[in-house]
Nucleic acid binder design. Sequence first.
RNA 1: CGGGGCGUGGCGCAGUCCGGUUAGCGCGUCUGGUUUGGGACCAGAAGGCCGGAGGUUCGAAUCCUCUCGCCCCGACCA
Length: 570
Amino acid sequence: MVIDMRLSKYFIPTLKEVTADVQMPSHKLMLRSGMVRQLAAGVFSWLPMGHTVLKKVMNVLREEIDRIGGQEFLLPALNPIDIWEETNRVEAMGEVMFHIKNRDGLILAPTHEEVITFHARQHVRSYRDMPMIWYQIQTKFRNEPRPKSGVLRGRQFIMKDAYSLDSTWEGLDESYQKHYEAYTRIFDRCGIKFFVVGASSGAMGGKQSQEFMVESDAGEDLCAISDSGYAANIEVATSNIPPVGRIAEELEIEEFATPNAKSIDDLVEQFNIPEERCAKSVVYMVEDAPILVLMRGNDELNENKLESILGTNVFRPATSEELIQFTGADGGSIGPVNLKTKVRVIADNLLKDANGLVSGANKDGYHFKNIDFKRDVNIEEFYDLRTVIEGEPNPIDGEPIRIVKAIELGHIFKLGTRYSAAMGANFLDAEGKENPIIMGSYGIGVERVIACFVEQHFDEYGIKWNKELTPFHAHIVGLNTKKSEEVREACEKLYEGLKEVSLDSLYDDRDDSVGVKFNDADLLGVPVQIIVGSKNLANGLVELKYRETGEKEMVSLEEAIDKVKSYYLV
RNA sequence: CGGGGCGUGGCGCAGUCCGGUUAGCGCGUCUGGUUUGGGACCAGAAGGCCGGAGGUUCGAAUCCUCUCGCCCCGACCA
C-alpha cells in the first residue's frame, strides 16, 4: 500500500502564525508545521506528518527495547480500580487519576505497574519463568492540574513503559542496567542531548531511580549538576555543607518576646541572630498526627525527601487551628521546646547536636534562645531534609552545584517488591520457597521525545529533522509545476525513483508560488530538498539542498536519487 | 485550588474603557485574469446571531450577573 504523498493531496496544514500565548519554539513549530493541533487543555491530535514522526520514534523505541529482550504488550487504559486499591495507589495518585463517572469501579490508568503485576501474578510461577521484560507503547491519562507547554505536559499522552520481572536482586540490577543502556541508545539515535540524574521515586515507590533529562527553560524539574559530573534531581540532591555545630558558650535557655517576628528573616533583622542559629519549624499533618520538622535558618524543606522518610505522600501543612491545638501557638512562634502536646519531631542533619539556637516558644509572640539540641530537646530523628542551593559544593568532589531547569524524558526505577508484595505476585525459588517478584519500571514520554528534539533542532525558518526521525527522506520542491510539464515529469521521475529504492519523499506539486514552497520546505525541515525548476532542468540538472547546513549542489536526476540514498546510508 | 489575562468569519488580530449607521484589518478560501527561483499582483465574491445564558436600556461585541472554555503565574518556609 503506497500512500500518495503529493502535497496537493496530503494533509499538512502549515501556518504562518500561531496565537500569541504559544511560547516554546518546539510548540510553535509543531503547530506551524501541521504536526499537531490542540483539542482541549492538555489534549492534542496528531496530524499525518506528526503521526509519521511519532511512528519513527516508536520504531526506535521498539528496536531498542526489543534488542534487550523486551516483549511488546498492549494493555488497556481502562482499569478496574480494585487492583489499584491493592497497592494503595488510589489514594497516592489522588486527583491525578481519572475516575469513570457513569461506571463504578473503573479508572483511566495513569501508568501500568498494577496491570503488569496482575498478569505476572496470573502466570509467573517459578524462578525459571524469569527474567522477563514486558513493555508497551500506549496512552496514559493523568488529570494534571495545569497542562502546559503544548505536548510537553498533557492530560493524555503516549508512553513507552517497560517492566522487568526478576527472581533475584542481581537480576534486577541487570535489567535496570540494560534499560539504562537502551535509553542512552534511544536518545542518541533520536539526536537528543541529555543527561542522567539520580531521582526520587515519588508515588512509584521503590529503591533507586534515575531520570533522563533535557536541559530547557521550559522544563518543570530542577536539577543540581556540576561540570565534574555530579547530577541529581533537586528532589534528592544533596550538598556538602558543614553542620551548624556547637558554639562554646553554654547559656541557659531563655524565653524572649518577639511580637513582630513572623519569619526567620524578621528574627535575623530584629534581634541580630545569625540565620543559621535559627531553627525553623514546619508542621505537617500525616493523617491526623502532626509532625514538626526543624530546618536550619531559611533552608527550604524538600517535600520529596520528607515523603520518602514518611513513606507516604499523603500529608499536608497543618492549619492555623491545628498548630494552636498541637503546639500551643500559631505559625511564627512554633518550636521543639515546650510543645503543648506530644508531637513527633524530626530535624535536618545540619542541626544535629547544635546549640545556641533560636526557635519558637509555642506561645504566640515568644521565642527561646540558647536552645541546645543535646540538652533541651530529645530529637531522635535527623534526616537530610533540605533543598540544595546553587553554588554549594556537591557531595562527590565539592565542585559547585549549578541548578538548571530540565524536561524529564525518561525515568528508570528499581521497584523491588513493592507491587508484587502488595498484590501477591509470587514465584517459587530453587529451594521451593515462595518470594515476591522483583520488579523494575522504565518509562519514556513519546511526545516529549519529539518536542525535545525540535527544541534542540530548529532555526529561524523551521525544523531540522535528523535521519532517524524525519517524516520523509526527501522533499521534492517542484517549481511552477502548473506551467511546466518538464518539471512535473522530472518530479514524478524522482518521486517514483526514490520509491523504488524504498525512500519516502514528499512531493510539493501544489500550484503555489516558489516562495510558499521554499518556506514550507524549510519549515517542515526534511533533511534533503530536491528543487526542480525549469531553468536548471534545461541543462538536465536539479538542485539538492541540505536543511541542516543550507549547503546546495547541482546534480542530475539520477545523481539526486543516489545522493539521497547515500545520505541515509551513512 | 488562589491570582491575572483572553474568547469577535477557517487562522492571526483591532474595536470593548466612553453603548448608537451596514462589526473592521491582515492571511486564507472561491471566480476570472496577469505572474512565477524565496510567503506575487489586479478585479470580483462568499463567509460572523461578537463563547453561552440571563439582565439593564429606545438601542449591547461594548454595561451588570451567572456560566463554559483556553492561556499565564503561583500553590511548605509558620
